[in-house]
Design a binder for these strands. Structure first.
Lengths: 122, 122
DNA sequence: TCAACTATTCAAGAAACCTTGAATTGACAT
DNA sequence: ATGTCAATTCAAGGTTTCTTGAATAGTTGA
């Protein structure tokens, strides 16, 4: 993932409504949810929703597919993952303390490998 | 980390100059770098730098300390880590595919634990 | 005290972003 | 064809964010 794509993705994440969208859609998996149902669930106007869905899709964080009159949106896990990776790898050079701090939960997976010996932070 | 702090941190990351700052300061560790030297290194005007440093500090991604006339800025690894964690845990509910996609590098650490059986993505 | 230096704050303008209601497109059913 | 429904696009406005030069605060050394 290159610089400008990562920036677009981070900008896309940096908004309350769009974070709500990610949170709502992630558990839906590849099936996703129709725009209308999303609008109803979150209680937001259609044009506003369209605006934010489009931002997320252009940033590579969501996918969409048409079914009849509906448009179903679902998260693109690799888009989010690559964005996180960009911050960790390209910006923080895999700095051990950063990885340690961000893997408190991921560490449930990573335990055993994460060799940040004596440098525990808050 | 709560919602609004995470949003502030993501907004702070979503800017080219501020990403440059993180990239520059991370390898410096706790020593950090003086504002003047940062300005010279990145070739940006002092007020502009101050503006972005302040944004990052308020978002909890940087710390600062005064030494004589200088102000040294350094990254707060836990700030960045908690921000990443927020996206992963609170927004994506630790969704396996997202974790898998973001741990291609972190996976060097996480291998063995990451039980994302048959669901490999791009 | 005075001059030099580092960094921040201020004010103004430019640019980008977000929300809203109205209009539009496209698909389906009758 | 016509009406209905789902979703997007458009245009206007308001707000926020960013950059710049000028001014300010605080620190050091002569």
């Amino acid at each position: 993932m290159d610089r400008s794509k990562a920036l677009a993705a981070l900008s896309a994440l940096a908004h309350e409504t769009r974070l709500d969208l990610i949170r709502l859609l992630t558990p839906q998996g590849d099936d996703g949810m129709a725009a209308g149902q999303i609008a109803e669930t979150l209680g937001i106007a259609a044009p506003r929703l369209s605006f934010h869905l489009s931002a997320l899709e252009q940033a590579g964080l969501l996918r969409s597919r048409k079914v009849a009159r509906n448009v179903f949106y679902s998260v693109d896990p690799s888009g989010i993952g690559q964005t996180i990776s960009y911050v960790l790898n390209d910006c923080c050079s895999d700095h051990p303390e950063v990885l340690a701090a961000c893997t408190h939960k991921v560490a449930g997976l990573a335990q055993g490998g994460l060799a940040v010996s004596g440098t525990e932070k808050t």
